[in-house]
Design a protein around this nucleic acid. Structure first.
Length: 194
DNA sequence: CGGCCGATTCGCT
DNA sequence: GCGAATCGGCCGC
């Protein structure tokens, strides 16, 4: 990924969570892990903004959500239900609390390592990364990446990618929330053509 | 300081 | 489909 596409991605993220949630589909999330390169194409996202009752930053700034108010392109990682981690890409300008939750990846590289990290017992390839907790477990994303810059070529980063000609985007309400349940802020890649 | 509640996942009914 | 596992943030006492 050259500096030009990195700049384009930065602009996309700064443009806001809604546009970024849609625009991130097809981009590749990469973790240069001890076992090697783990990579997956983003195929499902959700947008969370400051005015959104379902967002972690709706109540205001706290120690937990401070990364969401930081600059675009950094990671907001949180613990879910005590046992899972979920990763967001921070969007918008510094001072605004918003981010895009990475809900699912299509595994591209390091699939064997992902299977090991997920626990291979009876696990189909399609069940590796189809959920925000699964994404972090398969990719080895923990709280050590809280606030990490994903655009700086670090161990965890975003790389250019795109949708295929036979893929389109479906917009639906978000999953697993209890507030603003009908807001259409979930973006899913679906196979559309032949 | 005690209690409650998740942007979830998995296994069992 | 349902419920348990599990823990840190946040609110109320």
């Amino acid at each position: 990924m050259g500096p030009r596409s990195s700049k384009a991605l930065c602009r996309l993220l700064e443009s806001g969570a809604l546009a970024a949630a849609e625009g991130l589909l097809g981009y590749v999330l990469v973790h240069q892990a001890p076992e090697g390169r783990l990579a997956g194409r983003i195929v499902e996202t959700e947008a969370y903004t400051e005015d959104d009752p379902a967002s972690h930053c709706f109540p205001g700034r706290t120690e937990r959500n401070r990364a969401m108010f930081g600059p675009a392109g950094h990671a907001y990682v949180y613990v879910s239900y005590g046992m899972h981690r979920c990763m967001n890409v921070v969007t918008g300008h510094e001072g605004r609390g918003e981010a895009v939750l990475i809900r699912a990846l299509e595994p591209l590289e390091g699939v064997e390592a992902m299977i090991v990290r997920r626990g291979w017992q009876g696990r189909a390839a399609r069940d590796l990364c189809n959920g925000p907790g699964k994404v972090c477990q398969a990719m080895g994303i923990g709280l050590e990446f809280y606030g990490a810059n994903l655009l700086a070529g670090g161990a965890l980063r975003l790389e250019a990618g795109r949708l295929l000609a036979n893929e389109s985007i479906r917009v639906t309400p978000r999953i697993g929330i209890s507030k603003a349940v009908d807001w259409p802020r979930r973006f899913v890649v679906r196979k559309s053509g032949p």
